Amino acid sequence: MRIFLLTLVVMTAFAANSVLNRAAVGGGHIGSLDFAALRLVSGTVVLAVVASLTGGRRWLSAFRPVNIGALSLYMLAFSFAYRVLPAGAGALILFGTVQITMFGGAIAGGEWIPWQRWLGAALALAGLGWMLLPGTQGLPIAAAVTMAAAGVGWGIYSLRGRAGGPPIDTTAASFLGAVPLGFLAWALAPDGALNGHGVTLAILSGAVTSGLGYALWYAILPALGATRAALWQLTVPVIAVLAGTVLLGEAVTARLVLSCALVVGGVAFGLAAPRRQT
């Protein structure tokens, strides 16, 4: 139950990132790469303080090039893609690619995947497709490929978290290592003015729902395994959609309710599968 509740908190944080990004960038309060750069910097500051208080300078030895590269790929590709992609279509591409990447990593690592988990993943993906795909025909190919690259980056970053180690140290080092790449992208492609509201939302996303959220994600990943972690992440678009109906007044339709039920049911069915053969 403890892992269940902590994972639910993390998925809510991930969904909040989408809502904050949409409110800030979609509302014209900040450019997408400005948001990404501030997200990385504010996350780094908070994580560095927490890591230093809990482990001194230990976190400075936790730099891992693959982690930094994967996090940078996710952050920057996510921001680039959402400059033109609709939020729903982007979420479907992102988490569909994460699912494929993490299942592929599990297979490559010799992890046993029961048939219930395959079926649960298929049902959840079908629910996401039903929820998000209609009306997204004619997507810009370059943006769709960029969002798929973000999904690969996040999938690799999540797979790396299974190795364990102090999660706050690894996350702080990864954020700090990604900051130069974030600023380089921002300097090469500035994309608009920003105001105090946009800055506040970016800092909130970086410091709380990204920085602390990712550290908690790394803390629970060893207990989940690759395919269970991948399944859990398919709930993020559902949480984001539900948040939109509550916070943004978006319409609730029968298709929305039924597709959410299909996603949640598929995830629950897959998570109920045995962890290993007996």
Rank of each mutant, 00 (worst) to 15 (best):
198 G>W: 08
199 V>F: 12
201 L>D: 04
201 L>S: 04
201 L>K: 06
201 L>I: 07
201 L>P: 04
202 A>S: 09
202 A>W: 11
205 S>W: 07
206 G>T: 03
206 G>V: 00
206 G>W: 01
206 G>D: 02
207 A>T: 01
207 A>G: 04
207 A>H: 11
208 V>G: 02
208 V>P: 02
208 V>A: 02
208 V>M: 02
209 T>V: 11
209 T>N: 11
210 S>E: 09
210 S>N: 07
211 G>L: 12
211 G>A: 09
212 L>R: 14
212 L>T: 06
212 L>E: 05
214 Y>C: 10
214 Y>N: 11
215 A>P: 07
216 L>I: 14
216 L>E: 13
216 L>K: 15
218 Y>K: 07
218 Y>P: 01
218 Y>V: 01
218 Y>Q: 07
220 I>H: 02
221 L>Y: 13
221 L>Q: 13
221 L>T: 12
221 L>E: 05
221 L>R: 02
221 L>V: 04
221 L>I: 06
221 L>G: 01
222 P>S: 14
223 A>V: 03
224 L>E: 15
224 L>M: 13
224 L>W: 10
224 L>Q: 12
224 L>N: 08
224 L>T: 10
225 G>H: 07
226 A>E: 15
226 A>K: 12
226 A>S: 15
226 A>I: 10
227 T>A: 03
227 T>W: 00
227 T>C: 03
227 T>R: 04
228 R>T: 00
228 R>I: 00
229 A>E: 02
230 A>I: 00
233 Q>V: 04
235 T>L: 15
236 V>L: 05
236 V>I: 14
236 V>Y: 09
236 V>C: 08
236 V>N: 09
237 P>H: 04
239 I>D: 05
239 I>L: 13
239 I>P: 02
239 I>S: 01
239 I>K: 10
240 A>E: 05
240 A>F: 03
241 V>K: 06
241 V>R: 03
242 L>T: 11
243 A>W: 13
243 A>G: 14
243 A>T: 06
244 G>C: 00
244 G>D: 10
244 G>N: 04
244 G>S: 00
245 T>H: 15
245 T>I: 15
246 V>Y: 13
246 V>E: 10
247 L>V: 14
248 L>K: 01
248 L>Q: 12
248 L>E: 14
248 L>W: 11
248 L>S: 10
249 G>A: 12
249 G>N: 08
249 G>Y: 11
249 G>C: 12
250 E>R: 03
250 E>T: 11
250 E>L: 01
251 A>G: 06
252 V>Q: 06
252 V>E: 11
252 V>T: 10
253 T>Y: 03
254 A>H: 10
255 R>G: 13
256 L>C: 03
256 L>S: 02
257 V>G: 08
257 V>Q: 09
257 V>H: 14
257 V>W: 10
258 L>K: 02
258 L>D: 07
260 C>Y: 07
260 C>N: 06
261 A>Q: 06
261 A>G: 14
261 A>E: 08
263 V>F: 09
263 V>H: 01
264 V>N: 01
264 V>P: 04
265 G>C: 08
265 G>V: 07
265 G>H: 03
266 G>N: 14
266 G>V: 05
266 G>L: 07
268 A>G: 06
268 A>W: 13
